[in-house]
Design a protein around this nucleic acid. Sequence first.
DNA 1: GTTTTATTTAATAAGTTGCTTAAATAATAA
DNA 2: TTATTATTTAAGCAACTTATTAAATAAAAC
Lengths: 123, 123
Amino acid sequence: MKLEITCTRAEANQKQLLNCQATIENLDNGFRQMTKLLSIAGNDVRLKILFLLDLENELCPCDIADILEMSVPAISQHLRKMKDAGLIASRREGQTLYYSLVKSETQILNNIFTSIKSLKKSA
Amino acid sequence: MKLEITCTRAEANQKQLLNCQATIENLDNGFRQMTKLLSIAGNDVRLKILFLLDLENELCPCDIADILEMSVPAISQHLRKMKDAGLIASRREGQTLYYSLVKSETQILNNIFTSIKSLKKSA
DNA sequence: GTTTTATTTAATAAGTTGCTTAAATAATAA
DNA sequence: TTATTATTTAAGCAACTTATTAAATAAAAC
């Protein structure tokens, strides 16, 4: 909360800086949740898995490993991270686990998916 | 492109998997760009800097360091990463560098900022 | 020119990430 | 029960990230 003014510029308006600090602090919860979501989605493999789950509704680790040409344990560890964060859920059917998106968490994700599709054109 | 079917489930529809692979490959450019954006925004400090630049239009490294109570070199390195990615730009005024958002890059960022503000309520 | 101020750059160290390999569960099949 | 299949978990390691500290630029002030 204490603001150490380190630059001596006249324009470094202390009131403005204190306001910024207050705003950031006030939105702390939002920043924490959004950073968690973005850091998870900001990985090539996980972003593709999320996209695929949106596309196909549900997939098992084995299918995802085939599609992305990666090892099953590597996929499994990404799935666990996303499940821990509440982004995806699983249901069991015999030996197979089916993973799917948790819909309430996907508002920003939908924007991201749409954006990925439109970025294709400007390749 | 070669699809190694590793699971033997009947439901593992090879045609579906090949379609998924083709879709992912087709959107490769979109995934690459989006992963870059999200991995940059998926860091607590950088997300706050982007938010602050949106809020205040422009800020110098020194102001940002004051607001976030961090060292100037730490901020400077985050700024460089975002500048390299084309997310922000700088203009010089004497000794001071003012950083600001590159507007054409902020479509997804605006959704993110809005979301951060609304997450506040559900704290 | 020398000093001060704002910023960047570079070197380094601690922490994190994400893969691989091997072992452990869990459910089904023989 | 033993073997097979789908998946997870754990250990180990290489690569990446991000802060710190100290040194290097760059512009302005003295």
